[in-house]
Nucleic acid binder design. Structure first.
Lengths: 219, 219
DNA sequence: GCCTGTGAAGCTATTCACAGCT
DNA sequence: AGCTGTGAATAGCTTCACAGGC
């Protein structure tokens, strides 16, 4: 409805910046100091021009001689993507997928820590999985507020997702990553990143064929 | 490089069709017979116009009276998305995430079945997880060919992903869903759907804030 | 030379808006 | 009246191409 977008601040750009950050962290750990836009592009599957555009957004200016200084660039991207204070995340739904996600995120050193997990099954409470304390669902509101959690990962069954999302919204959560195969209806001022595994597989299957066909057609 | 795209056949359209299909299957199971584009749009977070455009792609024409006939529409979408013969998929990497994905896909009745799983750890072989037979990594090539697998899900550690992708490509796999946080470099005629959990969380965290800020700024 | 930063062009995707139908 | 199908318009994203600097 309303074009609230900050001219240059798109969805996709933010995603790529997250990607660049991870990449640059690895390079820095590898002992590299400088990098050119083309190199970043090659490693992320983009083009040099696009990388440079993305850098414009964060406001970092590289040198034509060395390219970008990895450490400084990381700082700038961090300033752009992160809040001053460390943000906290939680996960709801400690099933197979939930547990896998917990261990995935505990191993990564994101700027964002998953600090709490919830499940309706009380037998799962009070355990620690992937360095993350588990609570029963009744404690959701309480813990969200005491910890100041603004981002939540939903790994619950499809029919539980919508009511849960509404509850989370009511308690101030404005960013969600939803693995349930349902579109969440929540107010405009919250953001949902939908991850749809069935769709991903369908797409891979479809293009696995169609790409091959194109090749054949290419007389 | 080369604009191989079939005019109307975009990435995103295929994704939405997969979404519509799941939705329509549910509605059919619920006993519904007809549906309007606006209703589909409301349930997927799109617009009516977009739904109708997508339907143009599959070549199904609805009636202004009833809208779309769910059963027929499903058939058309199926004809469009699926091959005649049932396609098979495999999964590589039976870690936490791999196991979660196996049980996820075994419960869904997709047109695409995950029929085999692989892991370098031989102790995981010869088990059955989520109705899916597990093999040691050495048997990859053999099983891929005997089963005729064209689509593979990669749930392996980052450093193993690229060599594995090359191996899969060499054995005819042309569609992959990659959960490893690395961009896969493989030839143009294969398709990779990248699923990046860290990026998803970063985006949710970023927009959780920025949406709120916009609201404030809106004097 | 080979880089960055960036206006301008080009492309893709989405929405508008209306004809046509019942 | 209210829907679908679709040309035309718009919005959004990516790439081109070149000035400017060392």
């Amino acid at each position: 409805m309303e074009p609230v977008h900050d001219s240059l601040l798109s969805h996709k750009t933010v995603g790529r910046l997250s990607l660049y950050r991870r990449l640059l962290q690895e390079m820095l750990a590898d002992g590299q100091t400088y990098i050119f836009s083309r190199q970043i592009a090659a490693m992320t599957g983009g083009t040099g021009a696009q990388v440079r555009r993305d850098m414009m957004v964060v406001g970092y200016t590289g040198s034509p001689i060395h390219g970008y200084t990895i450490r400084d660039l990381l700082t700038k991207i961090g300033e752009f993507l992160d809040t001053g204070s460390a943000q906290k995340a939680a996960l709801v739904g400690i099933g197979n997928l939930g547990r896998a996600l917990l261990s995935y995120f505990s191993s990564r050193n994101s700027s964002l820590a998953v600090v709490a997990a919830f499940d309706v099954d009380p037998s799962k409470a009070n355990r620690v999985i992937g360095g993350c304390r588990c609570y029963p669902a009744e404690m959701l509101a309480e813990v969200l507020e005491s910890e100041g959690i603004e981002v939540v990962i939903l790994a619950v069954p499809a029919q539980e997702a919508q009511p849960l999302a509404e509850l989370l919204y009511a308690h101030g959560v404005r960013g969600m990553v939803n693995f349930a195969p349902v579109h969440l209806r929540i107010p405009e001022d919250a953001f949902v990143e939908q991850i749809d595994l069935t769709m991903a597989l369908d797409k891979a299957a479809f293009f696995a064929r169609s790409k091959g066909e194109h090749k054949e057609m290419k007389s």
